[in-house]
Amino acid sequence: MDAFTISVLSNIGLFSFLAISAWVLLICGEISFGQQAYFAIGAYAGGIATAVWQWPFALGVGFGVVLGAVIGGLVAWPTTRLSGMHYAIATLAFAEFVRSCLNVFSYQREVDGYLTGPDGANGFRDIRWAYEAGVEPLGYLGIIAAGLAAVIGLIACMARGRGMAQLRIVGEDPILAGMQGLNVNRIRIAAATLAGGIAALGGALYAHLATYVEPAQFGVMIGVHSLAYGLIGGLGTVFGPILGVLVDIGLLESLRVFSSYRMIVFGGLVALVLILRPRGILDEKTVRRIQAWLRR
């Protein structure tokens, strides 16, 4: 595989975490404009753990994931009782709050004679675990793929268990969910925790691939993008958001035919898909049909 393909695939993988994270909340009936906050938290926490504290990679990434999940749950605790629009704006406010805090967040320590760590708006350089451990881009793509497979596996387990059904019932009709004995608030907080952890995993992996992160990378635009991926790809299955990422980054960026008109083409494509299929390409109905076909 050439370097370009590897970098495109890595990008697809990393954005998939963010897209799945927003998708989990969409399934649960909540629109989040702010999953990039957890991506940023994962990136910074993972980076600090491996670069500043010199923790092993897996532990550093794990730290990022746990922090993202815990903060996701804590933010959800007061916000889940907000409805629709209010929740969306609250997530947006939190994400911008995180970004503006990172703009003034400095935490530098001397490591091997160099000052390492985040330095406010100047960003966070030298997250060099992959370089020091001698992991090639292809090997790192493998790590990203393994992480993504773990997330998909977790969601597949939830689909076999009661988790996904609970999320979907709450998302579809919270009042009815309550009448079926489901604790709607608790399920929403659980969904936000899960979504926070997934986004943070993506962020931690991203930081170690890019070796440099800065607050400006975690703006609203990428949050809205990740939300759109799920809506384009479809809400019926976890492969929906991944399909959305594939369409955007895979098709348009890698083909380069549309080069500078990429957004005009992408925008038009998305608008068209949504007119024809308001719940995305892989919507619930299609997924059920595919499942029935597979079962035969």
Binding site: M158, A165, Q166, R168, K285
Partner: peptide, 21 residues
């Protein structure tokens, strides 16, 4: 948006332990 089967199953999710999720 859920199947008929999932509609009936909706009544069975209450009181389930976390592991069941």
């Amino acid at each position: 948006r859920l199947s008929v089967y999932e509609n009936v199953r909706a009544a069975r999710h209450a009181c389930a332990p976390l592991r069941d999720a």
